[in-house]
């Protein structure tokens, strides 16, 4: 039979992957999704224990987690919108004003790879002279 342990392992791994993503990725939306993934890991834990204990309290807990996650999503996305309006970027590292006085800001030293040049539009050969509209066409317009 599938024991509770298997689910716990899956939940822990899911949580860990989410944690790694939250710690390393700098796009605020990706960070948010990683946090949601951590919540999913916890939800699996609760559901597994509900099954194990043979009652529904764990599932009720998952419902509350979903509710809280919904709140979080609402607030977080609103915050992203505002932050984006002010900084014109989703990079979380652009917000580091709350550092200790006198500590220099952290800046990225490595330069990004160059943007590959857009393929040039094909040049059309010059066409002939534009014919003057005829009287008929003028009337039709």
């Amino acid at each position: 039979m599938i024991t509770v342990w298997h689910y716990l392992v899956v939940a822990a791994v899911l949580f860990g992957i989410g944690l790694v993503g939250f710690l390393t990725r700098r796009n605020m939306i990706t960070m948010f999704l990683c946090a949601e993934m951590m919540l999913q890991g916890v939800a699996i834990n609760f559901a597994a224990f509900a099954r194990y204990h043979g009652n529904l309290h764990g599932q009720v807990f998952v419902l509350f987690i979903v509710a809280v996650a919904a709140c979080e999503a609402g607030i977080a996305l609103a915050l992203f919108l505002m932050l984006y309006r002010r900084a014109k970027t989703l990079d979380v590292s652009s917000w580091q004003e709350l550092r200790e006085v006198g500590v220099p800001p952290t800046v990225d030293t490595e330069s990004l790879p160059p943007v590959p040049a857009e393929p040039a539009d094909p040049q059309l050969s010059p066409a002939g002279r534009k014919p003057a509209p005829t009287a008929e066409e003028t009337v039709r317009v």
């Binding site: 390393t24 700098r26 970027t89 989703l90 590292s93 990225d108 490595e110 990004l112």
Partner: peptide, 15 residues
Amino acid sequence: LSAAGGPSDENDRTR
């Protein structure tokens, strides 16, 4: 919100 196309700080750098 995302910048279209090219590399950007938030997507191509990790902390």
